[in-house]
Amino acid sequence: MENVLSYKDYIGTVSFSNEDEIFYGKIHGINDLVTFEGTTVKKLKASFEESVDDYLATCKELNKLPEKTFKGSFNIRITSDLHRKASLIASQKSISLNDFIKKAIAFAINHENEIDCAQ
C-alpha cells in the first residue's frame, strides 16, 4: 500500500504539500479528526505514532471508544449496467444481491494485493 502508515492497528494516509514543503496526513477509522505532519519521513512517522498514542490516551481519559463504529450498512453508487450484471449473477447463483455484494467485498478484501485501484 502506498502513502499509508500503520501503527497499533491504526492507519494514516500520507500526502505531500509542495507549497509548504511538508508531509501531512490523518488517522483513519477513528471517531475524530486527528492529523499529523513532518518535514521529513522520519519526523512524519514519529508524528503519526505520537498522534495515535495521544489520541488513545485522550480516549482513555474520556472513557470513550477510539474506533469508529460501523453499523454494517452503507449506500453505494454504481452504474446501472454494473447493477444489472451483479443482479443477474446473484440470480444465477440463487442468492440475494445483498449476499452477492457481501461475498464480492469479502473476496476483494482477501485479494486486496491483486486489486488495481488506479482504475
Rank of each mutant, 00 (worst) to 15 (best):
K45E: 15
H111N: 15
E49V: 09
K42R: 15
R84L: 09
P66T: 00
L62R: 11
T39K: 15
L62K: 09
N98E: 14
A57G: 10
L82T: 04
A104R: 10
K93H: 12
N113H: 00
L33Y: 02
I101W: 00
F107E: 02
F48P: 01
H83N: 14
L88Y: 14
K102G: 03
T35D: 06
S87Q: 14
S73N: 13
A108R: 12
L97F: 09
K71N: 08
K102C: 06
Q92L: 13
T40Q: 14
E67K: 15
I30H: 00
E49T: 11
S94I: 02
H83D: 13
T39S: 12
N31A: 12
K93T: 12
S73H: 12
T69P: 00
P66Y: 00
R77K: 15
S51W: 06
Y55V: 00
T39D: 12
C59V: 01
A46C: 08
T35N: 09
G29C: 09
D53L: 05
L97T: 01
N31P: 02
A57D: 14
L82H: 06
L62W: 07
H111F: 09
L56S: 02
V52T: 08
V52P: 03
R77N: 12
K93F: 11
A86T: 06
N63Y: 09
N63V: 12
I89R: 14
E114N: 10
A104D: 03
K68W: 01
K45P: 02
H83K: 11
T69L: 05
I109N: 05
K102W: 04
T79C: 08
L82Y: 03
L62M: 11
R84W: 02
A108W: 02
T69M: 04
Q92M: 14
H111W: 06
F74N: 07
A104K: 10
L62G: 02
K42S: 13
D54Y: 09
G29V: 07
E61K: 10
A108M: 10
N75L: 13
T35W: 02
T40A: 14
E50K: 15
E114Q: 11
A90N: 04
L56Y: 00
F74L: 14
Y55S: 01
T69Y: 03
D32W: 02
D54S: 13
L62Y: 08
A108Q: 07
F48I: 05
T58I: 15
N113I: 01
L65M: 11
D99P: 06
T79R: 10
D54T: 11
S96V: 13
F107G: 00
S96M: 09
N113F: 00
F107M: 04
K45S: 10
F48W: 04
N63C: 10
Q92C: 11
V41Y: 09
K64Y: 03
F70M: 03
T69E: 04
T79Y: 05
A106N: 13
A90Y: 03
S80D: 06
E50P: 03
Y55F: 07
I89Q: 09
L82N: 08
E67W: 05
